[in-house]
Simulated scan of single mutants.
Amino acid sequence: MLDDVDRRILRLMQNDPAQSLPDLAKAMGMTPARVTRRVEKLRTDGVLQPSRAVINWRALGFSIEVSLRITLDKTQPRAFDEFLEAARAVPAVIEIQTFLGRVDVRLSLIARDLPDYQRLYREAILTLPHIADIEALMTVANVKSDESLPI
């Protein structure tokens, strides 16, 4: 699917995602038009996702990240759908993942401090529908957070 030129473009873009297409073309030793066509094809093929701003939530005053492992009451036919709909509406929830196995859902949420987390937990999390069991894991350190791929 990808040739060596595509892989090189992707590596350079991962190393410096803010670089302009002319700068990328210069680094590739190609014309800007050719690099632009390649990048557009990678976007069209779904290899490159749309760009988005990544905001450092810690710089905005959030200091706590908690991972909640949730098991749902699967005797309820719409448990997953109703839970996910309600969880999406909680602004402090920054990530939702679903799983196969004992744990059904993992929520990642942020809070300003421990009292803020306790308030969120009582007012927003414990009110979510169909929770059978919940386990909270507070993040102590983020050892690796890298979305770069070995291309």
Rank of each mutant, 00 (worst) to 15 (best):
D4P: 01
D4K: 03
R8P: 02
L10C: 07
M13Y: 09
N15T: 11
A18C: 12
S20E: 01
L21R: 08
P22K: 10
A27G: 00
M30G: 01
V35D: 00
V35C: 07
R37N: 14
R37P: 06
R38H: 10
R38V: 13
L42C: 08
R43P: 02
V47L: 10
V47Y: 07
V47S: 07
L48W: 00
V54K: 03
I55R: 06
R58I: 12
G61N: 02
I64L: 11
I70H: 04
P77M: 06
P77L: 08
A79H: 04
A79Y: 10
D81Q: 14
E82S: 04
E82H: 06
A86Q: 08
R88F: 07
V90A: 01
A92W: 02
I94K: 02
I94T: 11
I96S: 01
L100G: 12
V105H: 03
L109Y: 05
I110D: 02
I110V: 15
D113W: 13
P115G: 03
P115W: 08
R119F: 04
L120V: 10
E123Q: 14
I125K: 02
I125Y: 02
I125P: 00
L126C: 12
L128W: 01
H130R: 04
I131H: 05
I134A: 06
M138L: 09
T139V: 15
V140K: 11
N142E: 12
D146Y: 03
E147I: 12
S148H: 09
S148M: 11
P150R: 07
